[in-house]
């Protein structure tokens, strides 16, 4: 990589990191404001308004909020069920906030799992997600086909005793690519997804179709290729009975030969991993992005 390219990459990543931090700040703030009786719609609106006030005008997708057994997508059959409902939060209930703002042309897509009060099941799920985070990074660095990595994640989930809930997402994806987005004065969205971002995905899909790769990381044949350089929003989602937990953050994949540089988490903040695990041992409650 030439220096100029490296610098450009660094600038780009800084932009993505900034919006990802903004997204986590939003999730934390909204999570702190959740109380018994809050509905999913209210939680989604809180996220939307908080980000609007801070200059977000476009979205990869509008914020989602899932409460209770909807965190594990129990009985989800049609995609419309992902949208926020009037379900009310109660003490001990798990929740997941999933938001993807576009800020200054950079996209973030994060997932934030927590619970109102103590929920030992979700704590366990979150602690066990660590292993998935490591597994995914390791196998991407090994340049294994995405479909095989998907299967490896699946096997680990089954061994841990959990159900694969990202299978419920459109195309069963565990990850999808995100891009820089051109900012327009008018940024409409269809079915919750920003048109600019969809355009990016569609053009990627077209290129990928010609070159034999796909911007969607799925269990299907079209994902039977090594990781494609770019930014991937990775979102493994575990479920145990009526409780679900996910993380979602951006994995940067480059074409570098150096394994360390070939793939890394956009915002790799080691303390949260160990602290999350240790906090679980102490039996306390934690939230996914507490330490960010």
């Amino acid at each position: 990589m030439t220096r100029a390219v490296a610098d450009e990459l660094a600038v780009e990543l800084r932009g993505f990191r900034r919006v990802q931090r903004l997204a986590y700040a939003c999730a934390e703030t909204v999570a702190a404001r959740l109380e018994p009786g809050t509905t999913e719609r209210e939680a989604a609106r809180m996220q939307r308004e908080w980000l609007r006030e801070r200059g977000v005008r476009d979205w990869f997708h509008l914020p989602f909020a899932w409460f209770g057994d909807r965190t594990a997508f129990v009985n989800f059959r049609v995609p419309m069920q992902f949208f926020p409902t009037g379900r009310r939060l109660a003490p001990g209930m798990p929740f997941i906030l999933d938001l993807a703002p576009v800020y200054e042309g950079y996209t973030a897509d994060i997932g934030y799992s927590g619970s109102l009060g103590v929920n030992p099941v979700q704590d366990r799920l979150l602690a066990d997600l660590e292993a998935h985070r490591e597994l995914i990074l390791r196998e991407v660095r090994e340049r294994r086909p995405l479909r095989e990595i998907y299967a490896a994640v699946d096997r680990l989930m089954v061994r841990q005793g959990y159900a694969n809930r990202h299978r419920a997402y459109p195309f069963g994806v565990i990850a999808h690519k995100v891009h820089r987005v051109r900012q327009r004065r008018w940024s409409p969205h269809v079915f919750g997804f920003g048109t600019q971002s969809l355009k990016g995905l569609a053009s990627d899909a077209l290129h990928g179709h010609r070159e034999g790769w796909s911007p969607l990381w799925s269990p299907y044949r079209f994902s039977d290729h090594p990781p494609q350089p770019g930014l991937w929003a990775v979102e493994p989602h575990l479920g145990l009975r009526g409780t679900g937990a996910k993380f979602e953050e951006i994995l940067v994949v480059t074409d570098s030969r150096d394994p360390e540089q070939s793939a890394f988490w956009l915002d790799d903040d080691p303390p949260w991993g160990s602290r999350r695990a240790s906090e679980f041992e102490r039996g306390g409650t934690r939230r996914w992005a507490e330490d960010r």
């Binding site: 030992p120 366990r124 061994r159 005793g161 145990l240 009975r241």
Partner: peptide, 13 residues
Amino acid sequence: ESAARTAELARLL
């Protein structure tokens, strides 16, 4: 190992 895992999660549930 897997039996122990089942028992552990069963207690959590």
